[in-house]
Design a protein around this nucleic acid. Sequence first.
DNA 1: CTTATCAAGGAATAGGTTTTCCTTAGCTTG
DNA 2: CAAGCTAAGGAAAACCTATTCCTTGATAAG
Lengths: 340, 340
Amino acid sequence: MKQGIKWATIRDVAEAAGVSVSTASKALNGQGKLREETRERVAQAARRLGFAPNPLAQGLLAGRSFTVGLITTDSFGRFSIPVMLGAEDALGIGEMSVFMCDTRDDPERERRYVEMLAARRVDGLIVTGRRIEPRPPARSRPGIPVVYAMTQPAGGGAPAVLPDDEGGARTAAEHLLGIGRRRIAHVAGPERFLAARLRARGFAAALSAAGVEPCGDIAYGEWSEHWGREAAGQLLASRPDAIFCGSDQIARGVADTLRAVGRRIPDDVALVGFDNWSPMTLGALPPLTSVDMCLEDVGRVAAELLLAAIGGERDHDVHTVPSRLAVRESSGGFPAAGDR
Amino acid sequence: MKQGIKWATIRDVAEAAGVSVSTASKALNGQGKLREETRERVAQAARRLGFAPNPLAQGLLAGRSFTVGLITTDSFGRFSIPVMLGAEDALGIGEMSVFMCDTRDDPERERRYVEMLAARRVDGLIVTGRRIEPRPPARSRPGIPVVYAMTQPAGGGAPAVLPDDEGGARTAAEHLLGIGRRRIAHVAGPERFLAARLRARGFAAALSAAGVEPCGDIAYGEWSEHWGREAAGQLLASRPDAIFCGSDQIARGVADTLRAVGRRIPDDVALVGFDNWSPMTLGALPPLTSVDMCLEDVGRVAAELLLAAIGGERDHDVHTVPSRLAVRESSGGFPAAGDR
DNA sequence: CTTATCAAGGAATAGGTTTTCCTTAGCTTG
DNA sequence: CAAGCTAAGGAAAACCTATTCCTTGATAAG
C-alpha cells in the first residue's frame, strides 16, 4: 500500500553535501550562520537530488498545514467560480493550497466537510455561495478563521465580502441618464432576493438624484429570460427609452420582445443587464451592456482577509467590492475591449 | 505564528483512558489484541475529547496524503465544472480530499502546480480541460498516477475519459429521423476542434445508416450564437425541416434567424443543440432539445479510474462515457423532467 | 596568558501517529 | 512443577523538518 516513489529527504541532501541535517535545513532556509560556500554546496546537492521539503512534516511541526478550505453551496456555479478563481489567485501557487468542497446546499454535507477540513488542519476557510443573503454561519472549530464571500453569516462574527449590487445598479442608471435617456424602466429579479432589492434601490436612488421619475413601477419577477420577455411586453405601453434589467438573462428576454415588436436597440430603447456573464452578453443581439460585479475581486479580497485573519488580525466587517460597467452596443457603446 | 487551537492528540486520549499511546492507536483503528472493554474506554475518551487523528502525521508515516490534485486548464469553466463535481462525488467526503488547481492554460503554471502537488504527496492527479484534443502529458513525478478527463495525453500512457461526441450526435440525428424529418442540416463548430469533427461524423453516420442524404454540406464555423444566426441564413434556401447544431449557442443563433424569417420551431424546423447547457437550453424559445454529454459521469469515471490506479491497477485505455438526449419542445418533445 | 567573543556547524528535540517488537502475567499441558 | 502458549498491552522506532541549544576552534581584547 505504501506508495513507491522515493523522495529525496533533507537527510539525503545533507549526506550528499557532507553536512549535518540541521545545517542543511539552515542552508536551505537561509537561517543560522553558515559559510556562503556551505550554503551553495547544500543548494547544489538539493537541486541535484530534486529535493523538495515534505509539507506534511513541515505542517506537523508548524502546527498548521498551509492549506485553506473553499466551501461553496453552489456547486461551483456561475457566481462561485470567479470568486474561487480570485481567491486561488490571491493564495498563490506555492504558498497555500486550496481544498475544494461543494456542499450542494446540503447542511449535512457542509457539516461533514467543515469537520473534515478542521481535521485536516486547514489554516482557514472561505465560504461562498450563490446568494448574498445572510446564511447560518459555518460551524467550524473555534480558532479556525472563516471569511465569507458572496454571502454573509447571520449575526456577523466573521468578515464577509460582498459585491456592490446597489452601487452597480446606480452606475448603470447613471450611464443611461448620461446618454440622454429619461424614460428608464427597471425589470428586476425576484423580490425575495436581497440582491434584487438592492439593485432596485440603487436604480431608484440614481434616478431620484437626477430628478428623473422611473418609467413605471419596478417589476419584480424571476431571473429568467422568460420573465424578461413577459415584463417587456407589459412595459411597452409606457414607451420606455431605456430598460435596466436585474440580470443578463432578463435583458436577453427583454431584447427578444423588443426585437419582436420592431423596437431597435439601442436607438429606440437602450438596454443594460447585470452580471456581465459573457455567454449572455456577447451572444446577445446586439451585445449587451452589463454591470460587472468583479467577482474575482470579491474572491481576491476574501482571500486577503483570510490571510490577514490567519496572521492574527481581527476583522468582523462586511466589505463591499465596487462593480464596474461593461459598456457595449446595447446602450450605444462600442465593443468593449477584451470582447471577441 | 503557531496557531492557537489546541487539538486533542492521541496522547491525550491515551492518558484519559489510562492506557499507552500504542494501545490507544490500536483501539481506535481496530488493530491488535485488546479487550473489548479497553477499546470502548478509549473510544469514549476520544469522543469526549473530540479527538481526530492528525492527517499530517498519518500522511507523513504512510508516505501518502489521501489527497488528489484536480488540474484544469480551463479556469473551471463550463466543461470542467461538471467533471469536477462528478470526480469530487466519487472521491467521497471523508476519504480523499481534492486540491483545486487552475492553470489558466499556462504551461508554466501547470508545471508549478504539478510540482507543488507532488511535493504535497498527492496520491494521484486528475487532469481536465476544455477540449478533448490530445494535449502534452502532465509531467508529474513518475509513480504518481494520472487520469485525464475531457482531454487525453498525446502518445497515451495514461487512462483518459472522454465524452461520446460521435455517439451523442448520432443519437440526435436518429431522434430527428425518428420524428419524421428528412431534410436535416448540421451547423457545426470550428473544424479544427476534434469534438466538432466527431459530432459531424456521428451525424453523417446516422443519416447514412438510414439512407437519408444530409440537407446541404456540413457547415463548420464557430461555437457562437453569431455563427448560428449566419449559418441559418445561408441554410434557409435549402429548406431544411430539421437542424442539428454543434452547440447550444449555435442553436440559439439558428433559432433567432428562424424566428426572424417566420419559420416556426419545431413545426417547420426542428432544432437540436449540443451540450445541454441549461442557461441556454431552458432560456431558449422554445426550450431546446440538446445532447447531454453527462460530464458528471466523465468526472466520476475518471475518479474511479484514479482510485483504481492508486490501488495499483494498470490501465492506459481511453474510456468513453455515453451521452444522452434531453428532449424538449424545439424538437417536439414535452418539457423534460427536472427542467423548470 | 587568560578570558570573552564569534563564526560555523552539529546534536537533540518536538510534532502526532502507526507499527513492530517486546514484556508480563495467567493459563494449559505433559 | 516446568515448559510453552496466549491475551493484553507497553516501549520504541519510523516518518521528515525546523529550531533551540551546544560544541569546537579560532580570534580578539585585556
